[in-house]
């Protein structure tokens, strides 16, 4: 391919001129500060933060519960096993619901 066609020469000339003489934005240390000041006041998401904290606590508690299930939680008496399992399943279901709520919130934020 011939690099000396008028088209290529023009391209080279224009490219060199623009890249050499392009403006450069002078450093402006206040730019970001001023922009941030023009943003609306930050909203307090106390409700959201509480739900997030409760979800994390519930997931941790469930993890501990399941890890220690056989060793400590289930009582040795046969008749109490059903009650204990019911409590454990309720706690796990509650945690799953909280996690699902958080996932829905994430999806809503992104889409």
């Amino acid at each position: 391919m011939n690099n000396n066609t008028p088209h290529n020469q023009d391209e080279k000339l224009v490219k060199q001129f623009l890249q050499k003489q392009a403006y450069e934005a002078k450093d402006n240390p206040w730019f970001t500060h001023r922009t941030m000041h023009r943003l609306p006041a930050a909203q307090k998401n106390t409700g959201r933060n509480i739900i997030t904290a409760v979800t994390i606590a519930a997931v941790v508690a469930c993890g501990i519960l399941l890890y220690n299930l056989n060793d400590y939680i289930l009582p040795p008496e046969e008749n109490k096993i059903t009650d204990s399992l019911l409590c454990i399943y309720t706690a796990i279901m509650g945690t799953i619901v909280l996690v699902v709520l958080q996932v829905i919130r994430l999806i809503k934020t992104y889409f």
Binding site: A25, N28, F31, T32, T35, M36, L39, A42, Q43, N45, L106, T109
Partner: peptide, 16 residues
């Protein structure tokens, strides 16, 4: 997700 102003300031700083 968190309306993180610091993150936004970093974005501004990088792209300004």
């Amino acid at each position: 997700l968190f309306d993180d102003r610091r993150a936004f300031a970093t974005l501004v700083e990088q792209h300004q």
